[in-house]
Every structure is written in structure tokens, then in C-alpha cells.
Computed example of a mutant assay.
Amino acid sequence: MTEWGTRAAAPAALAFFALLGVLMTRQSTPVALWSAAGIVAAALALAKWAPSGWRLAAGLVIPIAGLVVLGHEQSSNLSWMGLCVIAAWAALSSALPVALTTLVVLLAGPVGEWAIHPSEPGWGAWVIGTAFTTIACVFARRLRLTVVELNRTRAELAERSRAEERSRIADEVHDVIGHALTVSLLHIGSARLALDDEPEEARASLVEAERLARQSLEEVRATVGLMRTDDPVRMAPLPDARDIADLVDSFRRAGAAVELKVEGDLSSLGSTRGLAAYRIVQEALTNAARHAAGEPVAVCVIAGKADVTVTVRNGGTPDPATTPGSGLDGMRERAESVGGRLTAGPVPQGWLVEAVLPS
């Protein structure tokens, strides 16, 4: 039962047991009616103002006193059942210290009557019933709070998962489009230079730029398609480490001087780590073509038993005014996401990107 449900049901239950108490009590009619009126009025006020904690415990003293008056000298009077209602109200609405303090106050009634009228049977049953109600409702409240916390945590995890997925898709699209535009610009630049003297070479460069644009568009569609379907048949395969040779060839066809060295079996990386290696080489080559156009680039992939080392070194003097962009951060995040590491920075006569990925 929720806290709102407790506030709605408790006054009705107390009014019911107060009415039974009036019908069964040995007190005079005015005393019984005034006691019942006090119980109902206090319960309605507490339900309306909805206090919790120690304020609720203090407010419950009035209905407790009224129930004790109605059930005085009578363990058979059902007004004592109202003590269980109050115990549930306090335990479901307040923290453990408040619930236990309320229980002590509640038990003072039947225990005191038991001490004064030991011959009257039934006092022990009310003591045990009230204590059991408190314990059961304390566990119920903790279970309810646990469920609420689990739901909140699940919502936070779902939102975090969506944010990570958006970030991953953004990285994929960034790498694909960046590579496509860079290599396409190289082809278009070559076509522009060869347009007058070598029209066939210019035509070939434009055809290659068009082919690369179409291929990149398919990769973007495949990447975005990962967010829309779980059917592997409908998703185009993403590249992996075995496609690095084709990637290097695309830069060579665009006129870039790229040397590739591969040692070992790249299939040992698998699809996830293989995609990370591919994207790292792709981004490194894109950056080299963009910031050190015309300089030679050396790509080396060495697949060992424990890990795979990917290095991309380009010549030229790095510009000291150049600040690291999102591309370097993206490469580093890709390496770390599969349990690897990546370093990038200037070296004598060039720039070096080195990634070490577990096999």
C-alpha cells in the first residue's frame, strides 16, 4: 500500500473500530462518544495535513488515547484493533525510529491494562498483534522503497544507455563522413588539376569520388540502422581489421602516399575490436590527409598473441598552434572501450598515433 493509500484507509478503519468500541465499551455514553469523536477527528486531520515522521507520531497520541479509553478493562473490545491500524499507519509512513517509538506508545495501553487487570484474558494477543503489524509494515515499507529506488535506477541506466548509444552513433558517423569528405576532396582536387591536360584521369578521379561517397552513405545507413533493428539480416556488415587494406587503397587511389605493413592474423581481433582498429586507422589517415597533405604515411598493424598494435605515422612538421580535436578523443575512447589504450602526439619529423588493443 502506498503512503497516500495508507492516509486514505487508516481514518476509515479507525472510525470503524471506534464505532465498534462505542458499542462494546463499559464507559458511559458521553465518554464513549467524545472518545470516538476525538479518534475520528484526529485521524481525519492527520490524513488531510499528511504529516510524517515525529509529527505524525505526536498526532497519533490522540487516537491512541481514545482507543485505550474505549477498551478500558475489556480485552474483548474490538477498539483495541485500532492499535494495529495505527501501528501500520506509522510504520508505512515513517522511518524505523518513528515506527518503533510509536510501537512503544501503543504497547503501553494493553500492557498497562494487563498489569491492572491480569485476570482479563486477551491482553497478550493485542500486544503480539500490534508488534507483528509494526514489524510486517516496516518490512513492507522498506520493500516499497527498494522497488522505487530500483525503478529510478533502471530509468537512469536506460537514459545513460541511450546517451552512450547516441555518442557511439555520433562517433561512427563522424568517422565515416570525415573519411568520405577528405578522400573525396583529394579526388576532386586531382580531377581539377588534371581536367585540362588529362581528362581521362580527371574522369577516373571523379568516378572514384562518387563511388566512395556512395559507399560512405551505405556505411552511414548501416550505422544508423543499428538503432532501428535487431535483425542481423537487415543490417549491413560494418568493417573490421581485415578491411584496413581496402581502406589504405582508397587513400592511395586519391593520391596519398600510404605504406601498409601487416603482421599476423587480423581476424583474431573479432568484430568489435576489429571495428575499433579500422576506425582508428581511418581517423588517423583522415587527419594526416587533412593536416599534412602530401606527406608520406606509414600504417603498421602487428597482431600478436596477447594484443594487436596499430601505428600510423605521417611525415611533416606538426603545427604547434594546432589543438587536439574531437577526432583524437574519439580514437582514444574507441581504444579504451575495448580494453586498449591509445597515444597520439608529435614525434621527430612527424606525428604518431599508436593504439594497443587486446586480441
Rank of each mutant, 00 (worst) to 15 (best):
P318C: 02
V61Y: 09
H291W: 09
V299W: 01
P51F: 00
W4L: 03
G294A: 08
H187E: 02
T102C: 06
L357Q: 05
F16D: 06
H117M: 09
A15D: 04
L19G: 12
G109D: 00
S76L: 08
D230I: 12
D175I: 10
V207W: 13
A88N: 11
A58V: 15
A222P: 03
A256K: 08
V356D: 06
V111T: 08
A65E: 08
L100R: 15
N287M: 06
A293K: 08
Q27E: 08
P346I: 11
L206A: 07
D307L: 05
G327L: 12
L44N: 10
C300P: 12
V61T: 12
A90H: 11
V127S: 01
S28I: 00
E218C: 12
L23G: 13
G255P: 03
W123R: 00
H187W: 06
L83C: 13
Q74N: 07
E120L: 04
A47Q: 06
A298S: 13
L212W: 15
E149L: 14
D230S: 15
S268L: 14
V207F: 15
I177F: 04
T323K: 12
L33F: 09
T286Y: 02
A136R: 11
W351T: 12
A18N: 00
E165R: 13
C137Q: 11
S190Q: 07
S216C: 07
E149C: 14
L33V: 12
S93W: 07
V173N: 05
E210C: 15
F139H: 13
R160V: 11
A284I: 04
R313D: 07
A293M: 09
V69Q: 10
A277L: 04
V308I: 08
E73N: 10
A87N: 07
S184L: 06
R234H: 10
E198K: 14
P318E: 01
A37N: 02
A289I: 09
R221D: 14
L20V: 06
T2M: 00
V338H: 08
R142A: 12
P320C: 02
A88R: 13
G21T: 00
P97H: 05
G316N: 07
I62K: 09
T272I: 15
L33E: 08
L106T: 03
A115T: 10
L103P: 05
V308R: 02
A191C: 07
A204Y: 05
H179L: 11
A43F: 03
S75C: 04
V173E: 04
H117W: 13
G294K: 02
R144W: 08
V127M: 03
G5L: 02
D307P: 04
F17E: 01
L342R: 02
R242S: 11
E156F: 07
P121L: 00
A254V: 14
L266N: 05
R228I: 10
L143D: 15
S93C: 13
A298H: 14
K305G: 13
T182W: 03
L46S: 08
E156W: 09
A194F: 09
V353N: 00
S359A: 15
A306I: 06
E165F: 10
H187S: 04
A58Q: 14
L70D: 04
R154H: 14
A355L: 06
G66T: 01
G82H: 01
